[in-house]
């Protein structure tokens, strides 16, 4: 078990995206999500840290950061969605896939995952209109040729409310 006391968002994310992790480490990923929910400015700080990791030249670090981002979208609620739904953060994702910015230096795997996430949010979070603006701009630019197919287990479906026991 990781020691939760004194952990910061940055230290959780460093552990969750450590390039020497042999596989995605869900203890750290969930630790990061929980820390976001505990802190007043958790979502604002988290998206800044995530953007930096997603732009890592190390593919495995970037892939893990995208998994963390996906987990945060599922577990950190509206406050986090609002931060992701700002151009300030969306622009950082656009930079990863656009050849005008970092696109030529980023692996296809990372770019495909970014596009998958953006598309899944346009479907799951229609109220976040800037996500749609960003995604359709990438389509107009020819950076996204066709909508990706999102596996059912990867769609952003909020957990259903718990069923009452023996009503």
């Amino acid at each position: 078990m990781a020691e939760a006391e004194g952990e910061s968002l940055e230290s959780w994310l460093n552990k969750a995206t450590n390039p020497s992790n042999r596989q995605e480490d869900w203890e750290y990923i969930i630790g990061f999500c929980d820390q976001i929910n505990k802190e007043l400015e958790g979502p604002q700080i988290a998206v800044r840290l995530l953007a930096h990791k997603i732009q890592s030249p190390q593919e495995w670090e970037a892939v893990q950061a995208l998994t963390v981002l996906e987990a945060c979208m599922k577990n950190c609620g509206r406050r986090f969605h609002n931060e992701v739904g700002k151009f300030r953060f969306l622009n950082e994702l656009i930079k990863v896939v656009s050849p005008k910015y970092l696109g030529d230096r980023v692996s296809e795997k990372v770019k495909a995952k970014v596009i998958e996430l953006l598309y899944s949010w346009t479907v799951a979070l229609p109220e976040e209109s800037k996500i749609k603006d960003a995604y359709y701009m990438l389509k107009r630019q020819g950076i996204v040729m066709c909508d990706p197919i999102i596996p059912v287990d990867r769609t952003l479906i909020p957990s259903p409310p718990p069923r009452p026991k023996n009503p």
Binding site: K86, F87, R88, L90, N91, I94, K95, S98, K100, Y101, K130, D133, A134, M137, Q141
Partner: peptide
């Protein structure tokens, strides 16, 4: 007011 100005400053990246 802070939120309004943040909204005004939030632009899509020029392509």
């Amino acid at each position: 007011l802070g939120e309004e100005s943040e909204e005004r400053d939030d632009h899509l990246l020029p392509m």
